[in-house]
């Protein structure tokens, strides 16, 4: 009897341990869990070094500052899950800030401008998707062309920064939803979180979403299983285009201006956030919530560097590069073990 009672909890403990370790070494959950641990660790480090680091306003500000990046990362997650990549997101974001600023400047109403931007960037995504699907052009090159096009169009619109004075945009930019005290968020955060929610539902509860995962796991298999592979492959670029456009709109809420040179290299941040968030770059594994964690990790590193004061901002890039390396090697190890 006594042996039984003592061994039962040990067994349960061992089982739990086994569960935990198998979750950490699974290619599906492992990287996301590592990201979560990492995020907590960074917060712990920040909290131990700086007063007021782990506080409501700091955490909420992470979301406020990175709302646009969350939206970009959501779109990028769809693309990378299929095994593709979208290099155009930064340029498309810049383009939509330029379109917004210049159209608002010439007196268009915000209620027309915003939907127009979303339609235009989705169409651009559609063209990229068709190029990839019909002409079998590598996603890398097709989205590169889109990147050139979008940046070029920015310059064509104007090479100077255009500020936005439209009352709707200004009020959207300045309205804060307060939680009492110094804790508040902007409308952008709400929109970004809505996007995340919709993306989550689409990825996990719709046939489109499951086909996205299927393509990443094996395009040929998906086709033989009778899934709409071709349509879905085009659609992910439309989604990414739409998200880039929306991210651009959120970015104008944040900066209240349009500028051609804005968000240079943001595509790298988005890709890094997705990879650090546990999505496999070859496709098939990953979660949109992981990408949000990835964005938060990037944002927290930036916050720490700001708090530190003496550390220069370029350390961010080096940290991101280092994290990318760690996660890419981690993915390699986790997927190799399964083969």
């Amino acid at each position: 009897m006594s042996i039984d009672t003592s061994s039962a909890p040990v067994d349960a403990g061992r089982r739990l341990l086994g569960r935990v370790s198998s979750a950490f070494t699974s290619p599906k959950y492992g990287p996301v869990l590592v990201t979560l641990v990492l995020l907590i660790a960074i917060f712990a480090i920040g909290g131990s070094r700086y007063r007021g680091f782990v506080s409501g306003p700091v955490i909420l500000n992470l979301f406020v500052d990175n709302a646009y990046l969350i939206v970009l990362a959501v779109g990028m997650t769809f693309v990378i899950l299929t095994g593709g990549i979208d290099l155009s997101v930064g340029a498309v974001l810049a383009l939509s800030t330029m379109i917004a600023a210049s159209l608002l400047q010439s007196g268009w109403s915000a209620s027309v401008v915003i939907p127009l931007i979303l339609v235009l960037t989705s169409v651009l995504g559609l063209l990229v998707g068709l190029m990839i699907h019909i002409f079998k052009i590598q996603p890398f090159i097709a989205t590169l062309a889109a990147m050139f096009l979008a940046r070029g169009l920015c310059y064509v619109i104007s090479k100077d920064s255009i500020s936005i004075t439209d009352p709707v945009f200004v009020s959207l930019a300045q309205t804060r939803i307060s939680f009492g005290g110094r804790m508040s968020i902007t409308a952008s955060v709400v929109i970004a979180l809505l996007v995340v929610l919709v993306a989550f539902l689409v990825l996990h509860y719709s046939r489109l979403g499951r086909t996205v995962y299927a393509i990443g796991g094996g395009e040929q298999s998906g086709m033989l299983m009778g899934l709409p592979v071709a349509r879905t492959k085009v659609l992910v670029y439309v989604i990414s285009g739409f998200c880039s456009g929306l991210a651009g709109v959120l970015f104008t809420f944040y900066t209240l201006s349009g500028y051609s040179l804005t968000a240079v290299g943001t595509e790298l941040d988005a890709i890094a956030a997705v990879v650090i968030g546990g999505t496999l770059l070859t496709g098939g594994y990953g979660f949109v919530l992981g990408s949000v964690l990835g964005v938060l990790v990037l944002g927290t590193i930036q916050t720490i560097i700001t708090f530190e004061g003496t550390l220069s901002s370029w350390w961010t890039r080096i940290f991101i590069g280092g994290l990318l390396l760690v996660f890419i090697v981690l993915q390699k190890v986790l997927t190799a073990r399964r083969r």
């Binding site: 290299g265 770059l281 070859t282 220069s312 370029w314 890039r317 080096i318 990318l324 890419i328 090697v329």
Partner: peptide
């Protein structure tokens, strides 16, 4: 040696490299 896809492998240095350059020039 590690067998990482080229586009991904070089992405790492693409991201971190400019940061390293900034470090050398101290911004």
């Amino acid at each position: 040696v590690l067998g990482i896809q080229p586009i991904i492998a070089t992405l790492i240095l693409m991201t971190a490299g400019r940061g390293a350059a900034m470090l050398i020039t101290e911004g």
